[in-house]
Every structure is written in C-alpha cells, then in structure tokens.
Amino acid sequence: MNDNDFMEQLATYLNVHLNLPLPVQLSFLTDDPSIALFPVPGGRATTSYWDTTKEMDFKWELMVQEASAEDTAAIMWAIYGALAKDDLMIMSSNGSYKFNQMNLNQPELEGEKNEMTVWSLSGSANLTI
C-alpha cells in the first residue's frame, strides 16, 4: 500500500474546499500554530475479494493547534462539518484506492500546549484497494 495517496488527497481536499487560516499538513503537531494530519495504527481489512482487492478501514487523526481558543474550535468544527457530509468524496489521484465512506468520532478538546488550544479529530476512511 506504499502508493496509496489517501492521506495526501484528504489534506488536499481540506485545503482546497475550506478557507482555513492554516494549511493542513501531513505531520505531527509542532510548537507553532498548525493543523496536523497523520495516519494512526489500527486499520484493518474488512472484506477481501477473489480478485485480491479488499475493503479497508484506514485510520487517521487530525489535530489543530492555535493561540485563540475560539479560532481553534471554529477550525475544528469547520473540518468536522466538511468531513461529515453524506456526499463526501475523496478521490485518488493515482488510482490506488476507491473511497467508500468516512467514519468520524466527535472532535475532542485536548487542552493547552505552549499556550495554545489543541483539538483533535479521529476517524477512519473505508477504502477499496
């Protein structure tokens, strides 16, 4: 699954479709205001087909860190709203997966780090690979 571009396409989708004050980056949080998107362990194949394709739940987490608590919450809820849409479609640019659906957990207030407010959102994407 090395050529799977889901994470890149998810970041691109958020950066293009939302007017966020910070770009979504494929990274972990730094000491600066940021929006970090990264894969997390625990994904699994849910269905395997005779032609060797399979459906997989691909787990990810997104964290927002910003100085203003209100801005951080607004960013997180905008991202949550965009990803919770029933007609959401995150297309692969290289044909490495077919997007089926997104499953989200509720955003969580993580607290403060370096005098900035931190929120997190986790979820999984069901992909056919």
Rank of each mutant, 00 (worst) to 15 (best):
L18K: 07
L14M: 10
M76S: 06
S122D: 06
D51H: 15
N103D: 01
G123N: 05
K54M: 02
A82N: 03
Y80A: 03
D5S: 06
F58D: 06
E110I: 12
I35W: 00
S96G: 14
N15F: 15
Q25A: 12
S48D: 02
S124M: 03
A69S: 13
N19Y: 05
S34C: 14
I79M: 07
M76W: 10
Y97V: 00
D71T: 03
D31K: 15
T47K: 12
L88Q: 02
I129K: 08
I35R: 02
T30V: 00
N4Y: 00
S48R: 14
T128W: 10
G42S: 04
F6L: 01
G81V: 01
L14N: 12
S96Y: 07
T30G: 11
Y49C: 08
T117R: 14
Q65N: 13
F38G: 06
T12C: 13
W60G: 00
F28S: 07
D31P: 02
Q25F: 10
D87V: 03
T128P: 05
N105A: 12
N126Q: 13
V24E: 02
E110V: 15
L29F: 09
L83R: 05
A11D: 08
S34W: 04
F38M: 07
A73F: 05
R44A: 15
T46M: 05
T53G: 08
S124R: 09
S93D: 15
E115G: 13
M7I: 06
Q9G: 06
Y80P: 00
E115S: 15
W50I: 11
A36S: 12
A11L: 04
N103E: 04
G111A: 07
F28C: 08
F6C: 07
Q106W: 14
A11I: 01
T47A: 10
Q25P: 01
M7A: 11
Y13S: 12
N2L: 14
L109T: 13
K98V: 00
E8D: 15
G43M: 01
F28N: 04
A84V: 03
D5A: 07
S34F: 05
Q65K: 15
G111N: 06
A125K: 14
D86R: 14
D31M: 12
S124P: 00
T47N: 09
A74W: 01
S27F: 03
T46W: 13
Q25K: 10
M63E: 14
M89W: 13
L62E: 05
M102R: 11
N94R: 11
E108K: 09
W119I: 02
S92F: 10
D3R: 09
N105T: 06
K98W: 07
V16K: 13
Q106V: 02
M89D: 08
N94G: 04
E115W: 08
N114Q: 08
V40K: 14
N126S: 09
V64Y: 09
L20Y: 04
